[in-house]
Design a protein around this nucleic acid. Sequence first.
DNA 1: ACGAAAAAGCTATGTGGAAAGCTTTATGCT
DNA 2: AGCATAAAGCTTTCCACATAGCTTTTTCGT
Lengths: 170, 170
Amino acid sequence: MSEPDHVDEIISAWHVQLPEIAGLPLELAKRSALLTAAFDEVAARELERLRLTQAEYGVLAVLRRVGEPYRLRPSELTGALLLSSGGTSNVLKRLGAAGLVSREADADDGRSTWVRLTPRGVEVAEAAVRAVTAAHARIVDRIPRAEAELLNNVLKDVLAAVEEGVLVRR
Amino acid sequence: MSEPDHVDEIISAWHVQLPEIAGLPLELAKRSALLTAAFDEVAARELERLRLTQAEYGVLAVLRRVGEPYRLRPSELTGALLLSSGGTSNVLKRLGAAGLVSREADADDGRSTWVRLTPRGVEVAEAAVRAVTAAHARIVDRIPRAEAELLNNVLKDVLAAVEEGVLVRR
DNA sequence: ACGAAAAAGCTATGTGGAAAGCTTTATGCT
DNA sequence: AGCATAAAGCTTTCCACATAGCTTTTTCGT
């Protein structure tokens, strides 16, 4: 065992107060939340510089990732991100106003439209993805390589076990 | 290696589109986010039943955890949760209106007040903490015991390495 | 072919929490 | 002691996103 960290303090407080609370589930939930918060924290700082919200970033990243012609339907974006259809609509309106995406009617399905990155949208998407990934890399660089890879592998296994029943996509 | 999961698909999409993006930092960030989302998801469902927001739950849990007389200053709550001072204020107003916390002036420091769980607040706090922990335990139960403990230990080590410079408390 | 039900996506409204600014009280410097 | 600065916490404003309901179009059953 390593020396006590901040989560250990929480655990031992619960151990005194309500012993049945202090267990592995609490530890895992807290530690997982802390690691995610660290990633989110640095990503948020980068996105603030670029004047993008998390949701906007998500849309740009998904559109860039699908490759030419950088085009998807709103419903596909709603599904790929964890966003409501109304939320997607708002985000697309903002991105449209900023000139980062354009929209065109779908010839086959009159209910639907295509959302497409503009050339500037492609640029911003790439800049944002690079900035966020670089920020994440600065965190991972603090971890010894072997340990980071171990964590990744264990996480993958665990997620495979966990995700059989919980929603979660991305 | 295990078989490809959903994150692997994202990685390979980036590998085609912008190869420098597809790396360990992205994988770790995504997998960490997914695990945290799984925990948050089930916790949110429990809290919804109890008519509590995440922030309200946080306040109740911290107050219950410090033990008798279940009392802290708003600034201590602001620090313990990841909340702004204004956000803390709003949450306390709601909890006060719901009869779960009471407030009393601090005799020593006129700027400050004490926030204290009412008897009902203690009950609700315990019910909420038990419900959330039980929900988390249902997730952890899907993971083989040895692997869950391995993950916890690796996470702890990694956090120790990462947290030297990133904020993050709780 | 026609009506019912489902699907896509938009609009309107609600909400939780952040940010900034204000008031009051405490502290520190000279 | 007296003034300036800092700290505590509340109020106000704002914003991103969720939820619910609506319109339009498609699909499916008969």
